[in-house]
């Protein structure tokens, strides 16, 4: 019978709790079951519009460079392999595998078929109100491998985000 004590300060560790991906995945499953598939996209859109509002603002001011910086930060943190090409009018990025999908599978959980919305709905919402549109060119639900494109809209009207399954 043991007596144990552990004292940790925030600075003792790196903030990276990958099991949060599982919780989100289960959350998406619950929303779909209770309110339908459209509700999943709507929830993620609302979240992204609110939480990533500073990023959208930066994209309006500084263009795609702000998004590039965001993507580099996120994938470096999660140790995901990513290739980005970026010009003034277009950013294209390829993800070899999605670190979230990989972790969920590694833990033995099934990935929600709507996990794709964590790309499509989220980046679509980030682009709303900016001069850019998002396109999910390719997506593999098994690995989360994807090709995504952000490009400057052709006219001043803010189109809906174009996506492919």
């Amino acid at each position: 019978m043991k007596k144990l004590i552990m004292r940790r300060k925030a600075s003792d560790n790196v903030y990276l709790h990958r099991d949060f991906h599982n919780a989100l995945n289960i959350g998406l499953g619950y929303v779909e079951k209770r309110f339908g598939a459209n509700a999943v996209a709507e929830y993620l859109r609302r979240f992204a519009k609110s939480f990533y509002a500073p990023l959208s603002r930066q994209m309006r001011r500084r263009g795609l460079g702000a998004l590039k910086k965001h993507l580099q930060r996120v994938y470096a943190l999660e140790k995901g392999a990513i290739r980005i090409s970026c010009s003034r009018d277009e950013l294209r990025f390829k993800v070899k595998y999605c670190p979230a999908v990989r972790h969920i599978r590694k833990m033995g959980f099934e990935v929600s078929p709507l996990f794709i919305e964590t790309e499509r709905a989220v980046y679509g919402a980030i682009c709303e109100g900016t001069p850019f549109a998002h396109e999910l060119v390719r997506y593999d639900p098994t690995t989360g491998k994807s090709v995504q494109r952000f490009c400057r809209r052709q006219n001043k009207t803010l189109f809906a985000t174009k996506t492919h399954k």
Binding site: L24, F47, S50, V74
Partner: peptide, 23 residues
């Protein structure tokens, strides 16, 4: 991808969303 470091905000928004939809 939503980074796991951004999850807490997504979690909080999920509770908000659910309450608006189903109390």
């Amino acid at each position: 991808m939503i980074s796991c470091t951004d999850f807490i905000a997504a979690y909080s928004e999920l509770f908000e969303f659910l309450e608006k939809r189903g109390g």
